[in-house]
């Protein structure tokens, strides 16, 4: 139901603006920083900036961390398995997109 715009909280698309650190992701998902580092080491997450002593991630990392943690928790997959699942899911999405373009 649309509401008048007057008394509502301004929302923004988080993925488009955010630059995140290991401690940001660790806090957001209430997991140990070590766990976020493991996601990077496993190739689940990629670092966009290495210019300082601290790793930086784009806002899109949020979705990957969210899915990775859910797959770990709900399906009991270990990190290499999560990395594989995410790669296969991306490949599947890519194939679906290509098929869509070919057919149109």
């Amino acid at each position: 139901m649309p509401l008048p715009d007057g008394e509502s909280l301004p929302g923004e698309i988080f993925e488009e603006s955010a630059v995140l650190t290991v401690s940001d992701l660790s806090r957001m998902f209430a997991v140990d920083e070590r766990h976020i580092v493991e996601l990077v080491e496993e190739g689940v997450l990629s670092v966009i900036e290495v210019h300082t002593t601290e790793w930086r991630f784009s806002g899109a990392a949020l979705r990957r961390v969210r899915i990775a943690l859910r797959l770990e928790r709900d399906l009991g997959i270990n990190l290499p398995g999560v990395a594989l699942a995410l790669e296969l899911l991306e490949e599947l999405a890519q194939l679906r997109r290509e098929r869509k373009v070919e057919r149109s």
């Binding site: 909280l9 929302g11 923004e12 698309i13 988080f14 993925e15 806002g59 979705r63």
Partner: peptide, 10 residues
């Protein structure tokens, strides 16, 4: 323009 799977932060 928000897409499915994207996040709003409050």
């Amino acid at each position: 323009g928000i897409l499915p799977g994207q996040t709003i932060r409050l």
